[in-house]
């Protein structure tokens, strides 16, 4: 489960911040976080990833205090809004990246399994610049899942997709969540996405998270 205990964070310069945010997301649940632009949703995900350090409070994942752990030690898969594919790396290497960084061999065929599951076998030799929005999104998901995360954080992952692609992408997210038994925190502005995917719906307002 994801547990935030009175997390506070202040932006450099002090203008913006999160104050005493507490949050509990049960294991293997799909939580959707909504809120107005600039309310701190992305900051919250970055705090969970370890890309930002809170000034106060604790972050626990499956009961383990990860507040001071490096991002690579947290077991989190992160798909940011711009997907952040590595510009100079082919799709095959993007998906193998987490295994390579940990010095692991793909004995169980994890990469092949993800490639088949996400239907991206024909994209493996391409660079990100040669992918469509929907293809990029699938590659970013495969790359995040190749790290075998216990928690998947999605920052408006469907915002750049057209209506038809978005519907199939929502089905894909639901299937991945169930098949990989993930705990998901999905940030979105879309009420339709929240209604379709969210088993737990949350709203962020004034630096606080409350049930929607």
């Amino acid at each position: 489960m994801i547990c935030l205990e009175s997390i506070s964070w202040t932006a450099p310069g002090g203008g913006f911040g999160l104050r005493e945010v507490s949050l509990d997301i049960p294991a293997e649940s799909y939580a959707v976080l909504m809120g107005s632009t600039g309310c701190g949703k992305t900051t919250l995900l970055e705090l969970l990833c370890g890309l930002r350090m809170p000034s106060r409070g604790k972050i626990r994942l499956d009961g383990q205090d990860v507040t001071h752990l490096e991002p690579r030690q947290r077991g989190i898969g992160y798909v940011p809004q711009d997907l952040a594919l590595f510009p100079a790396t082919r799709v095959r290497e993007q998906i193998r990246f987490p295994l390579k960084m940990r010095g692991l061999k793909d004995d169980q065929g994890l990469v092949d399994e993800l490639v088949s599951e996400l239907g991206i076998g024909h994209l493996l030799d391409r660079l990100p610049e040669a992918l469509s929005g929907g293809e990029k999104q699938r590659v970013a998901l495969a790359r995040a899942l190749a790290a075998r995360p216990r928690v998947l954080l999605l920052d408006e992952p469907l915002s750049a997709l057209d209506e038809g692609t978005r519907t199939s992408a929502m089905e894909l997210l639901r299937a991945l969540w169930q098949r990989h038994r993930l705990t998901v925190l999905h940030v979105t502005h879309s009420s339709a996405e929240a209604a379709a995917l969210g088993r737990l719906r949350l709203r962020m307002d004034g630096g606080q998270v409350t049930p929607a």
Binding site: R74, Y78, A84, F97
Partner: peptide
């Protein structure tokens, strides 16, 4: 001119 985001994602994927 290059976004730092891919490097940040790499950190979450196990990179130092």
């Amino acid at each position: 001119h290059l976004s730092a985001r891919p490097e940040q994602v790499a950190l979450t994927l196990g990179a130092t």
